[in-house]
Amino acid sequence: MRNLDLAIDPDTAWTAFMDRDRRWDGRVIGAVKTTGIYCKPSCPARRPRRENVEFFGSAAEARSAGYRACLRCKPDEVGRDRDAVAKAVKLIEQAEEAPALADLAAAVDYAPHHFQRLFKRDLGVSPAEYARALRNRRAEAALKGNGRITDAVYDAGYQSPSGFYSDAKERLGMKPSAWRDGGRGETIRWTQFDSPIGPMMLAATPRGICRLTFDEDEAALRRLFPNATLTKDDGGLRELVEGALAAIAQPASARELPIDVAGTAFQEAVWRELRKIPLGETRSYAQIAAAIGQPKAVRAVGTANGDNHVAVLIPCHRVIRSDGSLGGYAGGLDRKRHLLAAEGCGERAPQLPLVE
C-alpha cells in the first residue's frame, strides 16, 4: 500500500473509507488495484479488501498512477464542490444582506437543494446559519466598543434590532469557565431601574443580558462576578431596559432580548425548557423534569429554577407545584402573581394534573 504525501496515515485513511466519512472527501483518495478505479471516502460502493487498496493525496496522483475515476461517487468533483463553498462564503461575507440560497447556488452553478447539502457537509451549518453567525460576530464586535445596540446591529447587517434579538434567542454566549471564574475577562455593564413590580438591576455583556433581578445592587453583582470589569451605564443599556419593562408590562408584544448566561449542563437544560413554556401557560416542576428526560429530578429542577440569573426573560415564574399552588419565587410570590396575571394566568396559575 503506497502513501504518496498523504495528510493522514494509511490506517486513518482506511478508517475514513470504512466509515464513509465525508470529512475526508478531497483530502484522501482510495484506489482499488483489482478494478483500476479510485474513489473518495464517502463512496457508497462496497468496500474491497484492504490489501487491494492504495491511498493517494489527490485525484491527480491517482490518475498519474493509472487509475480512473469512479462513476458512482465522482471524486473529481470534490475539488469543485469545495471551491463552490469557498466562493459562497466570500459572497456571504461581502454582502450587506444575507444572500438567498437560490442566489448563492446560481452564483456557483449548483442546484439550491444540492448546494445546501454541500455547504452544510463542509462547514456544519447551512448558508443561512453561517450568515446569521457572521452577523452575530459583527454585532458583538461593535458592541464591545460600548456602542449603541441599534447602531451595532444595523452595522452588522441586520435590517432591524428585532432580527438581532431573534437570532440571539437561543444563544448562551459566556463561556462556562468565565462564569466559574467570576466573569474573568468579561466587561459587564449594569444599571438599576424601577419596574411596575419593584426596583430591578440589569447587567449585560456585549453578547446579552447576564443578570436581571429584583432588589439587587452593584455589591450583589460583584459577588457574582468578582473578576469581571463592572461599569455602570445608565444610558447605553436603555434599549435592554425598555425591553425588560415591556416583558413585564406588555408581555404579549414584548420582543426577544439577547441573553448571555451559562451554568451546568443540567441547569442549562432546565433554563432552555423554561423558555419553551408558551405565554399564558404554566408547567409543574415535575413536567419540566420529564421534559428534559430526568423525571425523578423534580427537586433538582426546583433548585435550577431558583438559580436562574435572568428573571422574567427566562420565565421561571411560569413553573408551579403539581397541586396548582405557586411554589416559590426569588422575587417573592406577589411578583410571581403579578407576572402570571399579566401573561393571562389570572390571580394564580390554574391547577395542573399530577405528573408522576
Results as ranks from 00 to 15, higher is better:
residue 151 D to I: 02
residue 112 P to G: 11
residue 185 G to R: 09
residue 155 D to P: 00
residue 143 L to N: 06
residue 110 Y to G: 02
residue 193 F to W: 08
residue 205 T to G: 08
residue 178 A to Q: 14
residue 160 S to A: 15
residue 187 T to C: 08
residue 138 R to P: 06
residue 188 I to E: 03
residue 152 A to N: 06
residue 153 V to S: 05
residue 128 A to Y: 10
residue 183 G to Q: 07
residue 201 M to K: 01
residue 116 Q to T: 01
residue 181 D to I: 04
residue 150 T to Q: 10
residue 125 V to L: 11
residue 169 K to V: 09
residue 165 Y to F: 15
residue 119 F to T: 15
residue 153 V to L: 06
residue 172 L to D: 07
residue 144 K to D: 11
residue 179 W to V: 00
residue 108 V to Q: 11
residue 125 V to Y: 09
residue 127 P to T: 11
residue 166 S to N: 08
residue 151 D to Q: 12
residue 161 P to K: 08
residue 138 R to E: 05
residue 116 Q to S: 14
residue 150 T to A: 12
residue 172 L to M: 09
residue 114 H to S: 15
residue 120 K to G: 03
residue 111 A to Q: 13
residue 163 G to H: 06
residue 107 A to L: 04
residue 200 M to S: 02
residue 198 G to Q: 03
residue 130 Y to S: 07
residue 201 M to P: 02
residue 137 R to I: 01
residue 162 S to Y: 00
residue 122 D to Q: 12
residue 201 M to I: 15
residue 124 G to N: 07
residue 120 K to A: 15
residue 148 R to P: 00
residue 116 Q to V: 00
residue 140 E to T: 14
residue 199 P to L: 01
residue 142 A to H: 09
residue 174 M to V: 10
residue 173 G to H: 03
residue 161 P to D: 09
residue 118 L to E: 12
residue 124 G to K: 11
residue 145 G to K: 13
residue 146 N to C: 08
residue 157 G to L: 11
residue 184 R to W: 01
